[in-house]
Structure formats: C-alpha cells, structure tokens
Design a protein around this nucleic acid. Structure first.
Lengths: 148, 148
DNA sequence: ACTATATAGTTCGAATTCGTACTATTGGAG
DNA sequence: CTCCAATAGTACGAATTCGAACTATATAGT
C-alpha cells in the first residue's frame, strides 16, 4: 500500500479517536460523580429510541458485550434511574424501564452539557458540523457492516 | 438551546464515538494477543514523532493520566518493545527508547492492518477521507484547547 | 413429546483506566 | 546554602470492560 494512503487513514482514525476521547471526558465532567457516558447513553437511548428494551438489544445498540451492559444496568438500577422487569414475551429475558429519577437525570445532564456545546459552537460553525454528520454516519455504517 | 441543534451535536459526537470504538476493535483484532491500541500507538508515536521521549511527554501526547502511561509502558517493556533509560537531563525523569523488536512489532502491525484499510477503501473513497481530515483536525484542536 | 441446539442473562476473573497518595529530584526565594 | 514548592514517576485501590463458563428458557428437528 502507498505509504501516503496509509498515513492518511491512520490520521483520520487518529483524529476520530482523540475527538471521541475529549468529548467523552468533557461530558463525564458534567455528570454526577460515579456516572459515566454509558450510563447517560443508555438513559438517553431509552428516551430517544424506545423505553422497555431488553438488555441484549441495548448491548447491540451500543456494540458492547452483554456482560458490559449488565454492569452498566446494575449501576443505573443502583441509582434508581431504571427498573428491570421480566419480559412477558420471553422468560429468559428482561426489559429495562426508565424511572422518573432517570428522566430527571437525563434532563439535568443535557442542561449541564448545553453550555459546552455553545462554547464549541462559537468556535466551529454549526453548518459545518451538519455537513459532516452524513459522511460520518456512512463511514460508521460501513465499519459496522464489515464487523463480521 | 434549540433542540434540533442539540440533537445535531449529539449525533455528531455519537457517530464519532462509534467509529472510534469500531476502528479500535478492528485494529486490536489484528494485534498479537495481550497488545492493545495504546501499545501500538506509543510505538508508532516513537517512530513517527521522536524516539527517546519521557513518559510524561507521551502521556501528554495521548492525553491520558501519567499512571496510565506507566501501565502501558510496563506492558511494552515486558514485551521487549521499548527500553526505559534514565534521563540525563533530569534525575526525576526517564526516557523511552524503541528496541528492534519494537520496530518489528510496529511494522508487522501495519502490514496486518493494511488489508482492512483496503476493504474500507473499496467502500469509501479515499478522497472523501482526505477532505474530512482537516475538519476533524480543526475540531480536535478546538476541543483540546477548550480542555482547560 | 423428546432431545438437541440456540439464546438471554449472570458470575467470575483478568486487563485497562485513572484518582489519590507517596518518593525522589529539581529549582527558585530568601 | 537552606528551605520549600513544583515536577516526574510509581504504588495502590476502585471502577470499567470483556472473554469464558454457567444457568435458565426457548425453539427446531425428529
């Protein structure tokens, strides 16, 4: 492979990795102590996508092993942000439901993150972000499909 | 804040996070067992940027706590990929030097990753990646500068 | 209906990450 | 020169991540 090409792709994924790390750290700095990005992400997902999903569906949505999702859900249950109920359609399975405290946690988190987004928006135009998203989504879809 | 704006930025950083996770997993699948992205990144950095850096300089380059870098370097030393020597300019400090085995590890890793890049390149044009890198680099620089 | 296989979730142990506290060394103020 | 604050690195412990093995339930083949 052309070395310039290799360098290009390394640079691309390297920038992606650094942005992911910086944005994750910035978000977690706003969350109550002991709560992490996965905690927020799951609660946010239950609101945005669908409440009452199974743990396995959540694990797939976030592309983490199901053992990791078990651990994350345990933390959310300990904080009273979700309830785990049996799955009436499958005795092996469970369902995950937001509590009122979970909704409040999510709303408060978003409120506390908004200022950071504003700061970023002042330095980088929203429209350029809007242009980037479809390309990133396409790349994400390709990598996701190649995963097998 | 406008909810559409908030959703846009969440989507952007969400795509970034997923791509980072997928690409990291894909790379680590090619590395010898027990070696991770940080191991490869440090060795690669010593070759691309400069050999003989201090652990603290490496920790800053990758934006991880110095304890994390200590752990990563211990792993590299255990594999014989780097040597740690005293820093002649500062008795508190050390320097990190690649070994021949470290160079071979890096070369082999790049060789083994090339096919994955090729597969991706067949599905997503290299030129579009080339266009994305400057925007991502700018965003990374902004987030990095805001970190204080 | 019976058996074999597949699936959902948990338990356990190992590796990574990182904050706190500590040691050793440096460098500047008096 | 003597202190003392700052810095480089490590030790330790807690939390996260994840693979392997396990239990319980569901489903397909006969």
């Amino acid at each position: 492979m052309d070395n310039e090409t290799r360098t290009l792709f390394f640079a691309f994924f390297n920038e992606i990795g650094i942005i992911a790390q910086l944005s994750r750290t910035a978000l977690e700095a706003r969350l109550p102590k002991g709560l992490t990005l996965p905690h927020f992400s799951v609660v946010n997902h239950l609101i945005r996508v669908r409440n009452g999903q199974t743990p396995l569906a959540l694990a797939r949505a976030f592309q983490v092993p199901k053992t990791t999702m078990t651990h994350t859900l345990n933390g959310l249950v300990a904080h009273g942000f979700v309830e785990i109920r049996p799955n009436p359609e499958d005795g092996r399975s469970k369902t995950v439901w937001l509590t009122e405290a979970g909704r409040q946690f999510r709303d408060a988190a978003i409120q506390s993150i908004d200022p950071d987004i504003d700061v970023f928006r002042e330095q980088y135009p929203e429209d350029k972000v809007r242009e980037l998203v479809p390309a990133l989504a396409e790349i994400r879809a390709i990598l996701d499909a190649d995963r097998d």
